[in-house]
């Protein structure tokens, strides 16, 4: 997969339209890497001039901050801000709601002022502008998709409609879980929980959320966050339903709808 980094752009004296902030999950996690590639395929298909920071990108510091380690967070944040300000970054798109939230809300007072959009809003804009053409009208027909709200997209930043708008673009049936939108149940990963075991209790949080997802009888559980995707995928596996229920990111679904990606479900 060919793509340019900000350094490449700078070397050629060009400026990209937007920085694609890949995030740690999108860079390293095998499942999330697929989402990254799907999103890039959409960007490239539409000839959007984007750049990544590549090896110059670091974790935004979100898990450290939410765990209570402000030192590690600010160290990473100030490094990232230095890199981005040197390149004159104006606009950022990211496929991770945690990166989105922290870049949008917490970087400004540290000197990092950018227009930050989550890929769900970014894709919604492209749809609204008529730039997305759905070519595969058959695969999704009659299929049920349920959307899991990411806390850091939903409650944290009140983005509920954009990801749903992306799903509605496919000819599928969008069904809601028992708790959705502002009442959406967390997948269990936020606040650095992703990186440690749950505290003792009756069950894991991702199991509780997966139960709600399975109750909808949807064939596809759509997410817009790499951590939610992991949590829900693990949840579906624990019910041994991975053959009939698949977890996809909205970028993968939209890429498939455009014929840029083949997904199996």
């Amino acid at each position: 997969m060919e793509l340019k980094t900000y350094a490449d752009y700078a070397a050629s004296g060009e400026t990209p339209e937007v920085l694609f902030w890949v995030g740690c999950a999108g860079s390293f996690d095998q499942r999330a890497q697929k989402v990254t590639r799907s999103f890039v395929k959409i960007l490239q298909h539409l000839n959007i001039k984007f750049a990544v920071l590549g090896t110059e990108e670091s974790c935004t510091g979100d898990p450290a901050k939410r765990a209570g380690n402000e030192f590690v967070f600010q160290m990473l944040a100030l490094q990232n801000i230095e890199v981005m300000n040197n390149y004159g970054v104006k606009r950022i798109v990211t496929t991770c709601p945690h990166c989105f939230n922290i870049l949008k809300n917490e970087y400004p007072s540290l000197g990092g002022n950018y227009e930050v959009v989550h890929h769900s809003s970014f894709l919604q804009n492209l749809i609204d502008e008529g730039r997305i053409k759905i070519t595969d009208t058959q695969s999704f027909k009659g299929k049920k998709i349920t959307y899991h709200d990411s806390c850091y997209l939903g409650r944290a930043n009140e983005i509920y409609e954009a990801p749903r708008r992306v799903i509605e673009e496919l000819d599928a049936d969008l069904v809601e879980m028992k708790s959705c939108k502002s009442k959406g149940l967390c997948c269990g990963a936020g606040g650095a929980q992703m990186f440690k075991e749950d505290e003792p209790g009756k069950k894991r949080i991702n199991i509780a959320r997966t139960e709600e997802a399975l109750e909808t009888d949807a064939q596809i559980v759509a997410a817009a966050c790499p951590f939610c995707s992991t949590m829900l995928t693990d949840g579906v596996k624990s019910f041994d339903r991975q053959q009939t229920v698949k977890v996809f990111d909205i970028a993968e679904l939209l890429a498939a709808g455009q014929g840029l990606e083949t997904i199996n479900f």
């Binding site: 860079s27 390293f28 090896t55 450290a64 765990a67 590690v72 990473l76 490094q79 440690k196």
Partner: peptide, 26 residues
Amino acid sequence: WTGMFTNMENNGAPWQFSPQDRLNWT
């Protein structure tokens, strides 16, 4: 979490991956 903090400080990611591998997804 202690491990996660160390990874974030040293590798710029919560997991123990090298920052040089950030573009491996391509």
